[in-house]
Design a binder for these strands. Sequence first.
DNA 1: GTCTATATCTCGATAGAC
DNA 2: GTCTATCGAGATATAGAC
Lengths: 214, 214
Amino acid sequence: MVPGDMLTDHPSYTCLSDTEKAIFNAALTEFGRAGRCGARMQTIADRAGINKAMLHYYFRSKEGLYEAVLMRVVSSFMDSVTAALDRHDTFPDQLRAVLDAYLRAHLSRPEVAGLWLNENLNGAPVARKLLRPKGGVEGPRRMIAWIEGAVRDGHIRPVDPVHFVITFLGSVVIYVIGMPTFSSLRPELASGSEEQIRARIDHLHSLFYHGLKS
Amino acid sequence: MVPGDMLTDHPSYTCLSDTEKAIFNAALTEFGRAGRCGARMQTIADRAGINKAMLHYYFRSKEGLYEAVLMRVVSSFMDSVTAALDRHDTFPDQLRAVLDAYLRAHLSRPEVAGLWLNENLNGAPVARKLLRPKGGVEGPRRMIAWIEGAVRDGHIRPVDPVHFVITFLGSVVIYVIGMPTFSSLRPELASGSEEQIRARIDHLHSLFYHGLKS
DNA sequence: GTCTATATCTCGATAGAC
DNA sequence: GTCTATCGAGATATAGAC
């Protein structure tokens, strides 16, 4: 849909039929809004402009649809993160690039954060499958290795890589998901304007850069 | 229940009848586990050791019960944060005390984070009501004022107080809520042991302290 | 205040025509 | 592949006795 969209540019998306794409987009919106349990098959069908029975024709069940959506979405987001890492050399540049890519990916698809959080409320069975060392998505482990490398090379002070990656990812996710609450502290935040996006990236970059430097 | 529990020590809790307390605790657990839609009134009744009809006697509907639980819980958590601020003088000590209080509050009631997130997925009507300037809960605005004061007094470098508070609260919330995912990166995290709690607090304290100091 | 029994409704899933 | 019609499980909510 959007040019440069993390999701619709992904190879595993472009090969879908039009109906499958419509279902997929509708399901993402609905699952992100209402969660695994709160989502309604009827709403997804309406939004996709098809019949409810068709959902069961393409995906056996609601569970099947949920898993398909979640796996595709998490994979493409994590791929965008690792791609950003590969495009830069110095630590500060990489830090900014990953922040930029990850925040913009989430802002362009705010439903994804909701999907992942709801998944965690249910024990994250699908997300855990996606993170398995062999055959899973490599984004988080790649980020951990990135921090480990920066510590080893003396670019940043010694820091627990797992804790930092949790803080890093969380600072972006929470900004998107908590927006309804935060915007009552500062209404401009909810505009999603380029100015607000840059302000968030600048804040996180300087906080983390100073927080990590040797 | 637990001595020192943020919730059960709160004045608005201790004046409830035994049945109301039982309902309240059961509802908190169930709503946190399954979300606003996934929660089952039958499960809440069973856990509270009462009949399903009693839930509708004390709280008119499922929605009413949900709102009552959420408002009470968010208030008491935010009160624990401001109390921690008042107990210390220097910025580093306050930073550690608030981190400690807020993380332990969430770990003692992991359902609360899930409740707040589900609330945001629905546009956060209750949370926004709680944050209104007059008559609402003062925790977040109190934290913002704390950061503003520290900047003004030269204890920390100039930083956007709202963005920092978002990052601060989010780094704690995401740790609790994302545990099912993160524990597949490092299984020990899920133990919730004192060692793991301290490691998280130490990480965040040093990251934020170095990230903010003049 | 507390319970049993039940009304009412919503939703996922399927059958079967086209 | 796509639709209409419907089944049946399971949930909220209430009626009414005690």
